[in-house]
Design a protein around this nucleic acid. Structure first.
Length: 774
DNA sequence: GATTGTGCCCTTTTT
DNA sequence: GGGCACAATC
């Protein structure tokens, strides 16, 4: 038997060897899904299949990279390298660059990130004199993104009665029009946003049969990982390319679908059976990762979901330890408890920092944890948050590169035309855009056409603008003469970014200079790494090549230092696919996890529960859950109740009221955090969580700490006065009827049916309501 | 046209 | 607590 098949269980082996025809693998958490996938690809290569004909789509770049590395260990590395492996976005961006001309783009098209898109939306709103408060860019973008993921053009969007009705109800009937302008601006800038990559790929495969045929022939075998997280656009791409041979293998777990909010569609899993009636369905149910206790806990939680494909995930490992529940009085204390707990386990069990991960729902929660870890001298690393490529100075420099490669890239152009300051102000920028609109050309075209006879601007401005154009053009001539690093360095120096940044000697300023240097290093490293896929020779790469990749990189993709030993902090979303011996899940509180926004519909709550399921199943050996009874949010203290998810775990699996004692270790307890450190700090408790008086007792007192902002023309009433049945007025949502009131004190919530915008769940502490009728 | 100050929102999650 | 948009001031 082939070595590749040796250490697989029966269903895994079936998943690996069933190469021909449609296969769907439903893989429970920890069931060796990645193993099955990598071995499958290795097996295919071993069977003589050309690696070039295999396309393997992953959810993140990181997953692709890791998978490639694992395949390289199984087969000849050169062969593994040739597999088309990457995210949907990176693979199809690559294909779109090849075929760009067919769709009216050039292959140098820019990929706008969310930030660029937002700026563009705001610019459009401003031009049209639409109130940005009534039309938040983020909301508009979300609507547009959903539309594009479902393959609606702006025209479809405007003509669709249901969508229009939704927008009318939300009081935002202009979104369709904004969508139109937004798309035409992108096109003008020779740019695509993330969703366009998938959208345009679909257009390409739909409207150009010869191109479709080309890729159908090319990609003889298709694999899709994390299939439950694909959206409609992705689903259709796969369906189109796979149509010829139907050698398609999708791997997923409906219980781990956590990206519904961005258009992922579990329906894709169900459709598979319909699209490919002769599918082989393989279930991987044995969990190799976690103890029985952890698997049982996860199963008991997910059983509360109605929408799920039934499966029986089980573990052959030992029972393992019970789950520990930490109760803290505040978020800071939660941090201290967690840090102390980690310290204790490290000492008493000889563990390394990297054995631990702390998972939370939102990035904002990392702060108190960081502080506590720092005090305890535990090295840690935070994932997510502001990524390197999102830093202002990095984006500024990248914007120069973008303009050099694609001068029509308007967002980049406007970003740098006056940075570093060269006396080109907002008025000039506005004027340039207006002229571009009038002439139906790009801002860059306008700039190029300027000369001494131009009457639109005064002489001084024309000179400044011309100098800018000349500078960019001089960079452009170097594009193919210098390699990526040389040109990047040349631009950085000529433009004087470092010089400007060095004037700021604050720690932040120093940091910024370092970031620029790091970016240049990254470019050099990238250049060094480019190896000819056939000959293995090193190739020289130009800046454009580097920029192709950069837009799709995220923080997740940054290189890891080998052997580094630190505790990991990350959101649950970014922990998907990872595993750790000791897992802390913190902030298990109502309105945080599950988040308040997920409480209104069953579907949202179920997605939240799947998220909790993902968190639980990251653990190999030990789970520690925690919640805080109060927490700083938006700068003031909020009281919270323990999450309902805690109750959903089979209570027998949770350790009851156990005193934490890590004998023989010194635990630095920081008393400054917690005036009551004798009380809650070391009580590991599970059973007194639902004591009712606790809340009411405290809520009255704390209510005083929440002064209400009251604009003169609007008199909000105290939350206590709101009752079901009242007619109320909200500044943003207008009039409505209170349907239901729940919660006590600062946690009091009201479900209000607004005449215009429908049903909303409001935290009364924040929502300003005035009573119209008792 | 640039810099500083003020008030307002807000918090999911990511390619 | 913080980031962002807009206003006020140099």
């Amino acid at each position: 038997m082939s070595d590749i098949l040796k250490y697989l269980n029966e269903p895994q082996r079936e998943a690996v060897t069933t190469i021909e025809g449609p296969v769907m693998v439903i893989a429970g958490a920890g069931s060796g899904k990645t193993r099955a996938l990598t071995h499958r690809i290795a097996y295919m290569i071993e069977q003589g299949i050309n690696p070039f004909s295999i396309m393997a789509l992953t959810f993140t770049n990181k997953a692709a990279k890791e998978m490639k590395e694992r395949i390289m260990q199984l087969v000849e590395p050169g062969a593994a390298r040739n597999v088309w492996m990457g995210t949907f976005h990176s693979i199809f961006a690559r294909i779109l660059r090849i075929e760009a001309a067919n769709l009216g783009y050039t292959s140098e098209f820019t990929i706008y990130d969310t930030d660029d898109s937002k700026t563009l939306i705001n610019a459009i709103l401003k031009e049209r004199e639409i109130d940005t408060k009534a039309y938040p860019a983020k909301y508009i973008l979300h609507r547009i993104s959903m539309a594009k993921s479902a393959l609606y053009t702006p025209e479809d969007y405007c003509e669709n009665a249901e969508i229009q009705e939704q927008d009318r109800r939300a009081n935002k009937p202009l979104i369709g029009e904004i969508f139109k302008t937004y798309n035409s601006r992108l096109k003008r800038a020779n740019a695509m946003d993330f969703d366009d990559i998938l959208f345009n790929t679909n257009v390409l495969l739909r409207d150009f049969p010869d191109i479709l045929l080309k890729y159908q022939r090319h990609f003889e075998y298709i694999l899709v990982d994390e299939y439950q997280d694909t959206n409609y656009a992705q689903y259709l791409i796969i369906k189109r390319i796979a149509a010829m041979r139907e050698n398609i293998c999708v791997v997923g777990d409906d219980a781990q679908s956590i990206y519904g909010f961005r258009g992922a569609n579990i329906q894709n899993i169900l459709n598979f059976k319909i699209d490919y009636p002769e599918q082989r369905l393989i279930r991987l149910e044995q969990n190799y990762r976690s103890t029985k206790t952890i698997v049982k806990a996860a199963n008991s939680v997910i059983a509360n979901n109605k929408d799920q494909i039934k499966k029986n995930v089980w573990s052959d490992k030992e029972e393992g330890e019970l789950i520990t529940l930490l109760r803290a009085t505040s978020d800071n204390e939660e941090g201290t408890l967690v840090a102390n707990s980690i310290f204790g386990y490290k000492m008493s069990r000889q563990l390394a920092n990297k054995d631990f991960v702390i998972l939370y729902r939102t990035n904002a929660q990392s702060r108190s944890l960081e502080e506590a870890l720092r005090k305890q001298d535990i090295p840690y690393k935070i994932y997510g948050g502001l990524s390197f490529y999102d830093r202002k100075e990095v984006k500024d420099l990248l914007a120069y590169f973008r303009v050099v490669i694609n001068p029509n890239d308007e967002q980049a152009l406007l970003r740098i035309i006056n940075y570093p300051a060269r006396g080109i102000g907002d008025t000039t920028k506005q004027k340039l855009q207006v002229i571009a609109d009038e002439r139906k050309c790009t801002v860059w075209d306008v700039l190029k056409s300027l000369n001494e006879q131009s009457t639109e601007f005064n002489m001084g401005t024309v000179t400044k603008l011309s100098n800018f154009v000349t500078m960019i053009q001089s960079f452009q001539t170097q594009l193919d003469k210098m390699n990526a690093f040389e040109l990047a360095k040349h631009i950085t120096e000529t433009v004087g970014i470092i010089k400007v940044l060095k004037e700021d000697e604050s720690p932040d300023g120093v940091m910024r200079v370092q970031n620029i240097e790091e970016l240049l290093n990254a470019i050099q490293e990238f250049s060094d790494k480019q190896v000819d896929e056939v000959t293995g020779e090193q190739m020289t790469v130009n800046l454009a090549k580097f920029m192709e990749d950069v837009a799709l990189l995220t923080d997740q993709d940054q290189k890891e230092e080998e052997n580094a030993d630190y505790v990991t902090l990350m959101t649950i979303h970014s922990a998907k696919g990872l595993e750790f011996p000791y897992v802390y899940i913190v902030g298990l509180e109502e309105n945080l996890f599950p988040g308040i926004q997920s409480l209104s519909t069953r579907e949202d709550l179920e997605e939240e529960r799947r998220l909790f399921y993902v968190a639980l199943t990251r653990a190999e050996t030990k789970l520690i859950l925690s919640y805080a009874e109060s927490r700083y949010r938006w700068g003031n203290i909020t009281l919270s109740e323990p999450s309902r998810f805690i109750e959903e775990i089979d209570p027998e699996l949770i350790e009851r009221t156990k005193k934490a004692s890590f004998r023989g270790t010194t635990i630095k307890e920081d008393r400054s955090y917690n005036p009551f450190s004798g009380r809650g700090a070391w009580t590991f408790s599970g059973d007194k969580r639902y004591e009712q008086p606790r809340h009411s007792e405290r809520s009255e007192e704390s209510a005083k700490h929440y002064p209400k902002a009251s604009p003169s023309d609007f008199i909000p009433v105290d939350a206590e006065e709101i009752e079901a049945g009242m007619r109320v007025l909200h500044q943003k949502f207008g009039q409505g009827t209170v349907v239901k009131v729940e919660g006590i004190g600062p946690n009091k919530k009201a479900s209000v049916d607004f005449d215009e915008s429908g049903n909303k769940m409001l935290m009364l502490k924040f929502a300003k309501l005035s009573i119209l009728k008792q």
